[in-house]
Design a protein around this nucleic acid. Structure first.
Lengths: 101, 101
DNA sequence: AGCATTAGTAAGCAATCACTTACGTAAGCA
DNA sequence: TGCTTACGTAAGTGATTGCTTACTAATGCT
């Protein structure tokens, strides 16, 4: 899925955003991701599921390890939504400013 | 405020996103905004407060009416955060792809 | 085979959220 | 001055969320 709501919900949580930012720098194992966090490993696992379902990250299994990396599909979906909305938003803002002259 | 968490949280709710999208098209009165929604007027009022606190919209009072319009500060804050993150994300994605060759 | 490692799932719980109805407040208007 | 319009705030409630501990599943290692 690349539903807009799920994307925003996924990134609304600070822990999840932190996880995504770290994965964005480079691919990481689930366990290593958990180590840098204040919450327990299961909590991280649940957060990663939300990010996966949103289409922001993807997993690749390698033995017992799971390598998390950025999924460009979700990133692209969000970018396109925002570009559209930002565009009309800033356009409306300009028109409102002009109306004041 | 233009805190990143508040920005994402504000847009994570579908009702709030709808409100923001409508305001993005053109400035609107609080009452008119409520008319297009399925929830009650007080609910809309509460949502508008969240959008205001996030810095995504701003109000201008005119008698008893309140005109809501886009606040470019919040929009800009979110855009800059995303540009940074998307950049590193897609960069990491490219590097991962190259590593596979 | 048996134990350790890696990671997801289940169950339960306190905190937060989005919603409703009821109320408060300030400006228009007769 | 009293009634109406426009809107925010308060209080209460069911649903959802993020967290924890306990458990399960699958692979690695000796």
């Amino acid at each position: 899925m690349t539903n807009i709501s799920t994307l925003f919900v996924a990134l609304a949580d600070p822990t999840r955003r932190k996880l995504f930012e770290r994965i964005a720098v480079r691919s990481m194992l689930a366990g290593d991701l958990a180590k840098g966090m204040r919450v327990t490993r299961p909590a991280v696992s649940q957060h990663l599921k939300v990010l996966r379902d949103a289409g922001l990250v993807k997993v690749e299994q390698e033995g017992t390890r799971r390598i998390y990396s950025v999924d460009p599909r979700g990133v692209e979906a969000m970018r396109s939504y925002l570009n559209r909305t930002w565009d009309t938003a800033l356009q409306a803002f300009k028109q409102a400013a002009e109306r004041k002259d």
